[in-house]
Design a protein around this nucleic acid. Structure first.
Lengths: 182, 182
DNA sequence: GCAAATCTATCTAGTGGTAGATAGATAACT
DNA sequence: AGTTATCTATCTACCACTAGATAGATTTGC
């Protein structure tokens, strides 16, 4: 019953560490104490697992966006809340954004997976743009793209760094420039 | 003689499209009209190929930084020149930064490869920081990290996008905010 | 100057291992 | 009894990598 969930949990963690192609049914099964064939019962093809993974990830992300911390009229607070979603994942779980990792190997992915990743990006950038618009930013769409891109970039750079200096520096600078839109 | 170069060219292109683990000696050899075994003469282990690839990439990047377009005292021009290095790769070759792709799957890479990627990032951010410093930016180090992270993020997002709207939007916004540091 | 030795770059052939995936049996729960 | 979930066993395809041979170019020694 919760085997499917467990598979998703393990697959997500591993993919966020090393990418889509490095993760194998064998390894996931071994960590669960199952045989790799059993995983195909839950996710017939790896592509199915990939799609399910991104869909669940997008859903969890949506939940975080509707959480209390994002419900503010202060630009500074909103930006901080959004940044913290990724900052927490990076520093506490030491994991990158699933969709960032997948997008980096987009051409090597089954196209249904790439499609889901694409949706995740456009959905989140749109969400940010809408919020910026209600906060009367001058260029809400551009700023949303900038904010989102900056976070993804700061994450991927810190994947090979020892600490989080690069991430913090990148974020610090943008927070100052964006929190005062006028 | 230039087989090694050809291998590097093909491997770089393929890795920048689909990541390290998706690229195989077999596929590279097939494209060259050779047998995969022959590739091991030039690069004994895949790890050797990976390291050589990042080193050559870093070198080519260094050359672009010392090119005439980057030799300017106008913040606006410098930023534009730096942005164009990646914008050109993305739009003309439809390729992401090699190190971005590799960093996204860092935990699945041989550690010598990850080390080279790390060097590439720190080297380029340092270069930017130094230039920003001579241009009297208020926070040169932070701005360098922001600039670099933003570009990497904008690239990875546009890997799954149809056009370059997201990339252009992200870059447009940062250019305005950074070109007027005071 | 010629012969021997070495180097370069490729080949054929094969190793052991891992990938995702399938078929069919079996167990467990309801 | 039927559904759910896992098993065993197997398949085909691919992976990185190695051994050993070969043909041609280059270098070395006499």
């Amino acid at each position: 019953m919760n085997s499917a969930l467990k598979i998703l949990d393990i697959a997500e963690r591993r993919m966020r560490q090393a990418g889509y192609n490095t993760v194998s049914y064998r390894d996931i099964a071994a960590e669960m104490g199952l045989k790799s064939a059993s995983l195909h019962y839950h996710f017939p093809k790896k592509e199915d697992l990939g799609v399910a993974l991104v869909r669940r990830y997008a859903e969890k992300f949506r939940d975080q966006l509707t959480a209390s911390t994002c419900d503010t009229d202060l630009p500074h607070e909103l930006i901080k809340a959004f940044v913290n979603i990724y900052a927490n994942a990076l520093k506490k779980q030491k994991l990158l954004c699933l969709c960032l990792v997948l997008a980096a190997e987009a051409d090597g992915l089954p196209s249904p997976v790439t499609e889901e990743v694409k949706k995740f990006f456009s959905e989140n950038i749109s969400w940010l743009a809408e919020r910026f618009e209600t906060l009367n930013f001058e260029r809400p769409a551009d700023d949303a793209n900038t904010m989102f891109a900056l976070l993804q970039g700061a994450m991927v750079i810190s994947a090979t760094s020892d600490g989080y200096d690069a991430f913090d520096a990148a974020v610090r600078s943008i927070q100052e420039k964006m929190a005062t839109p006028q």
